[in-house]
Design a protein around this nucleic acid. Structure first.
Lengths: 142, 142
DNA sequence: TATTGTTATACTCTATAACTATA
DNA sequence: TATAGTTATAGAGTATAACAATA
């Protein structure tokens, strides 16, 4: 097995790990520009697709539901979300974006996607399309 | 522009962002299995390559140097690293892995790389090699 | 003066355990 | 009994500002 450290010789796992840290650092800086923490940015991004219950968000984020309380508290205090009752289950709460939350989510997502796209901007068009298709395959069902 | 949500139709930026969260969740679970936080795991992984000064680590992690003090304190308390004087600069401290730290870093890295490799294991060999080469190109110089 | 590292303080994020209300 | 969400407590990680020691 080749064990050199040249970028061109790295294995798939190392490449994926480095790339993920690269993307996360872009994500973090984009959050900061919008005065959000990465977790708050992720919360807004998820809720931009559709409102979610607390338990659902906890499962989606892979954290205990108790962690969601403070997270949603802070987002609510900033006017990004509100807790809405769920008709038919008086225990549950649907976390929903406010108009300000939608605006913040859209601005953040535009920002982060534009910068992440830049990572692939030097690829030849056919390489980029192949890369995109392989990315789609890798994340499918996960 | 196509705006469907099917996995096969996602753009490169969205694919990269989702993949990075996927890799980070694997990284987090592998850390947890070794009783490390993700940041501690990252610290050990970086130091496995070579010892680093506090300021160097702060720059590498993109955090303030003050944050490194507690991070290295906790790693030192657990016997993974120690602070060594730097000959020729009595201000600086070289953070160095202990034998236990090297062992922990190697075990963690084997673990996380094996699981991350699994993400690409369903690709056809030629697709995987092309994917690997494109990853190398994207992270080069970054 | 600039740099290296630390301390003090405050905030966010998270886990755990115990709790309330509802199903 | 089980589930949805909260509270209380503790610890990790981080930023900021002020500091000491050295360059």
């Amino acid at each position: 097995m080749d064990e050199t450290t040249q970028a061109d010789e790295i294995d798939v796992a190392t490449g994926l790990i480095r790339l993920s840290f690269l993307v996360q650092s872009i994500y973090g800086r984009a959050s900061e520009r919008r005065d959000l923490t990465p977790v708050q940015a992720k919360l807004l991004s998820v809720l931009a697709d559709s409102p979610r219950c607390m338990a659902e968000l906890a499962a989606l984020f892979g954290v205990e539901k108790a962690a969601l309380t403070g997270l949603v508290d802070r987002a609510e205090r900033r006017g990004f979300v509100h807790r809405a009752p769920v008709p038919g289950d008086r225990r549950a709460l649907l976390v929903t974006l406010t108009p300000e939350g939608h605006q913040a989510a859209a601005a953040f997502l535009d920002d982060v996607k534009a910068e992440v796209s830049g990572l692939a901007s030097d690829l030849r068009p056919d390489d980029r399309e192949r890369f995109r298709a392989t990315l789609a395959q890798v994340i499918r069902e996960r």
